[in-house]
């Protein structure tokens, strides 16, 4: 089977990276940050009733699959998506698509991918990658978080496609069947920002958006008293681990969103978005200061200022900054109409 001529670009986040790589392959060049922003990828949610390794779920990005869904539902785009019950059928359909020179996006479970470093092999089932060829018993894989394409045995890939547990992929494969030659940047950018604004400052639900950050701050203050030092440190480390998912540069996905706003400012020639991007970078820096302080606590080498109260205050600062920037963006959106 002849591998597809597919250009691999490394990215900081798997789903936006796969989206950007697949669109670029279809002749619609798009940066990762742009795919992230247009797909409404930014979010915050503190969901203590969902547990990961017995720790509360904290998420800094939209639900898995949300970015791709945004593009799949956009006018001019059609996406072929399929899930399977039968493993053999899933392999056969993937091979058939590859035989037609179609690079295929897959949702997989990280734990079963042999090329992943040992320390990152947790049961996370929403990792996206692109398979662009098969040579013997190996798939040629463009995994966007890796610097170069990798190989993965068919058996391991099949196992990863049928991982069980939360967000089970059920063999999910997808590819764009139709993309427009050009897109209306203004429409996609405003829709992407509108979607994120609604979630971050327009939701009445107290656990998501800016309210969610404040809720987390309130809970975080109480952890040492309520859980004891060891459990409190574990909870704190978990918040940071979720924030620093591979390659976000320390600030959740805030820096990536700032990159999207900067790129949008250039495309739409609107300096106001540039100002919003600068504010967003400040928010990312505050998140990073929180992570650095939390890491010192987790390592048992806290400075005098590294208290849970101080960290909660830093989180409230993040919330205030993000509230301001999204209010500004909402005003900007109103001006666009």
């Amino acid at each position: 089977m002849q591998p597809v001529d597919f250009t691999h670009s490394q990215s900081a986040h798997c789903e936006s990276g796969v989206c950007s790589n697949l669109l670029t392959h279809k002749g619609l060049p798009m940066s990762e940050a742009m795919a992230f922003g247009m797909g409404g990828g930014l979010f915050f949610g503190y969901l203590p009733f969902i547990r990961l390794h017995n720790l509360p779920l904290v998420t800094y990005r939209a639900a898995a699959g949300g970015i791709l869904k945004h593009f799949a539902n956009a006018p001019g785009f059609t996406m072929h998506q399929k899930q399977f019950r039968d493993k053999e059928q899933a392999v056969a359909e993937l091979d058939a698509a590859l035989a037609q020179s179609i690079p295929v996006g897959l949702q997989t479970g990280v734990f079963w991918l042999p090329y992943f470093p040992r320390a990152l092999r947790f049961h996370f089932n929403a990792h996206n990658l692109v398979v662009y060829g098969r040579e013997g018993d190996d798939y040629l894989v463009s995994d966007p978080v890796f610097p170069t394409p990798v190989r993965c045995p068919v058996a391991d890939m099949t196992r990863a496609r049928f991982a069980s547990g939360a967000l089970a992929p059920k063999g999910k494969m997808y590819y764009f069947t139709q993309t427009p030659q050009t897109i209306d940047h203004h429409h996609f950018i405003t829709e992407g920002i509108r979607f994120v604004c609604k979630l971050m400052i327009g939701s009445p639900f107290p656990l998501i958006g800016v309210k969610g950050i404040r809720f987390l701050a309130k809970r975080l203050e109480k952890w040492p008293h309520k859980l004891g030092k060891e459990r409190a440190d574990l909870h704190l480390g978990h918040v940071v681990r979720m924030q620093e998912e591979i390659g976000t540069g320390g600030g959740g996905f805030r820096f990536m969103y700032a990159a999207f706003l900067q790129e949008s400012a250039t495309l739409l020639q609107d300096p106001y978005l540039e100002q919003c991007a600068a504010l967003f970078t400040q928010s990312g820096d505050t998140w990073r200061a929180f992570a650095a302080s939390a890491a010192r606590v987790c390592k048992d080498r806290p400075r005098e200022e590294d208290t849970y109260q101080a960290m909660a205050a830093t989180l409230r600062e993040c919330a205030a900054k993000e509230e301001q920037v999204f209010s500004n963006l909402r005003t900007w959106l109103d001006d666009q109409q």
Partner: peptide
């Protein structure tokens, strides 16, 4: 891995490198 970092001009860019140290500590 790559991550977004602001350059001297304030523009975000993808920088290749090892993971940020606090990530290693919490991992």
């Amino acid at each position: 891995t790559v991550s977004y970092q602001a350059g001297n001009d304030g523009r975000q860019q993808l920088i290749s490198g090892d993971m940020w140290q606090p990530v290693n500590i919490v991992n």
